[in-house]
Amino acid sequence: MNIKILGPGCKNCQKLYDMANEIVEELGIDAKIEKVTEFKDIASYGIMKTPGIVINEKVQVSGRVPSKKEVKELINKNL
């Protein structure tokens, strides 16, 4: 599984990154989590508001920090 956190590095982006790492560890799954901070790379996903979360190259959420429960459900749905 490939998870990308889209954002310039603001506190909400970092919060989402930390949350994704925590959930992956809790679930015990093999996932690569990376930060995407370059605007052109973020824009290539078609989102204009950050933070965003992309799982397996599909945008799941953008423009807000989802709840931990929501992120966990998104990860489970994309396993």
Rank of each mutant, 00 (worst) to 15 (best):
M1N: 06
M1T: 14
N2E: 10
N2S: 15
N2F: 10
I3P: 04
I3L: 15
I3E: 02
K4V: 14
K4S: 12
K4G: 05
I5E: 02
I5W: 03
L6M: 12
L6R: 13
G7H: 06
P8E: 11
P8G: 15
G9W: 10
G9Y: 13
C10W: 12
N12A: 11
N12G: 09
C13T: 07
C13F: 15
C13Q: 04
Q14E: 13
K15F: 09
K15P: 03
K15G: 11
D18S: 10
M19F: 07
M19N: 07
M19P: 07
A20W: 01
A20L: 05
A20K: 03
A20H: 04
A20M: 10
E22G: 13
I23G: 02
I23R: 01
I23T: 05
V24C: 12
E25H: 09
E26A: 15
E26T: 09
L27P: 05
L27N: 14
L27D: 08
L27I: 13
G28P: 07
I29Q: 09
D30C: 12
A31N: 09
K32T: 14
K32D: 15
E34F: 06
E34R: 05
K35M: 08
K35E: 04
T37E: 14
T37C: 06
T37P: 01
E38T: 10
E38P: 04
F39W: 11
F39M: 12
F39T: 12
K40C: 05
K40G: 05
K40H: 10
D41C: 03
I42Q: 00
A43W: 08
S44T: 10
S44R: 08
Y45E: 01
Y45F: 15
Y45N: 03
Y45D: 00
G46S: 07
I47F: 02
I47P: 00
M48N: 14
M48I: 08
K49N: 05
T50M: 02
T50P: 01
P51R: 03
G52H: 00
G52I: 00
I53V: 07
I53T: 02
V54R: 00
V54N: 00
I55R: 02
N56V: 06
N56H: 07
N56P: 13
E57S: 15
V59S: 04
Q60I: 15
Q60S: 13
Q60Y: 01
V61T: 04
V61E: 02
V61L: 06
V61R: 03
V61W: 03
S62A: 10
G63Y: 04
G63F: 02
G63V: 06
G63L: 02
R64M: 08
P66E: 07
P66V: 04
P66A: 08
S67I: 11
S67N: 12
K68I: 04
K68N: 09
K69T: 14
K69E: 06
E70F: 04
V71E: 04
V71K: 01
V71N: 05
K72W: 10
K72R: 15
E73V: 14
L74K: 15
L74G: 01
I75Q: 06
I75Y: 05
I75W: 03
N76G: 10
N78I: 11
N78D: 11
N78Y: 09
N78A: 14
L79D: 12
L79H: 08
L79A: 13
L79W: 06
